[in-house]
Write a protein that binds this DNA or RNA. Structure first.
Length: 273
DNA sequence: TTACAGGTCTTGT
DNA sequence: ACAAGACCTGTA
């Protein structure tokens, strides 16, 4: 893959949208920006200049891994039209501001672990914990660049998992339980992938340490259930400020999670310089 | 020093 | 059902 044109994709926006902790900023110039992205045991360096993207990755890797990862088969323009036609000026502002946000199709296991770590935590510390977890247990992908895959449950030694150097705090016990559970039930994750949104929520909520917010994040980012709408402290503030009489989820059946990302990205980054 | 961070669990009404 | 309070820990 040399260069390709893609609409509705902005790497910086996705990096700052909070759905992934595996984008590393490599280089930024006034016109272009390059990220190193790790997913599914592979590493991609991708440079964006407007709508033009370039990388040295093989065509095979692009077709088999990254095209799907970036959710390129989904038409975000169409979702944008829905918003623009809705007459909701706040939502319109969020969409126009964050048109390059997509819902990445990330690995379910990685999302499960990452969003358990995210609870009552800050982004810097979350990313640091995940980084250390990969460095300690993950398969090397490009070790000269300090790039390691996200470890499988079998690579993680839960016996030494209470080591405080990962900075997980009380979440380590939740994770330890889940590692053990997955090892005893190796088909749990593939079963989860066959469930619809409601069933997968119910199943995830039965795991200790997974509440409604984290379960919705896993549904949205790990299972691509786009009707999931994670409500965290920021989204709670958004809803009470802009929708005091309630948000009409029925009007956006099946795409609510994408709207959540536009709103979330807007709240976190708009007005910061 | 104290408070906070993309919540969840536990306990007490 | 619902409302507090506790909870690891790095950062400002």
């Amino acid at each position: 893959m040399k260069t390709i044109e893609i609409k509705n994709l902005n790497l910086k926006q996705i990096a700052d949208s909070g759905q992934t902790f595996r984008f590393k900023l490599i280089d930024e110039t006034p016109k272009s920006i390059t990220y190193g992205i790790t997913a599914f045991g592979k590493y991609l360096e991708l440079c964006q200049l407007g709508n033009t993207f370039s990388s040295t990755c093989s065509q095979e890797d692009w077709d088999q891994t990254w095209q799907s990862y970036f959710d390129l088969q989904t038409d975000y323009q169409k979702i944008g039209q829905l918003i623009l036609n809705s007459g909701d000026s706040y939502l319109k502002e969020c969409y126009e501001y964050g048109q390059g946000v997509r819902i990445l199709r990330q690995d379910l296991w990685e999302m499960l672990v990452s969003f358990i770590i995210s609870q009552n935590n800050n982004i810097k510390r979350i990313a640091g914990s995940i980084e250390k977890l990969c460095q300690r247990y993950g398969t090397p992908i490009a070790p000269e660049k300090d790039i390691y895959a996200f470890p499988t449950p079998y690579q993680i030694d839960s016996a030494e998992f209470f080591d405080t150097s990962l900075g997980l705090g009380y979440r380590s016990e939740y994770l330890k339980n889940i590692f053990e559970y997955i090892k005893e039930n190796p088909d749990y994750l593939s079963k989860l992938k066959t469930m619809d949104y409601e069933k997968s929520m119910e199943s995830l909520l039965s795991l200790k340490g997974v509440g409604p917010k984290v379960a919705n994040c896993i549904c949205l980012f790990g299972l691509h259930h786009v009707s999931a709408f994670p409500i965290d402290t920021h989204v709670k503030q958004i809803l009470s400020a802009h929708y005091p009489n309630g948000f009409d989820f029925n009007a956006y059946e099946g795409v609510a999670g994408i709207l959540q990302q536009y709103m979330f990205y807007h709240k976190l980054t708009a007005g910061r310089k």
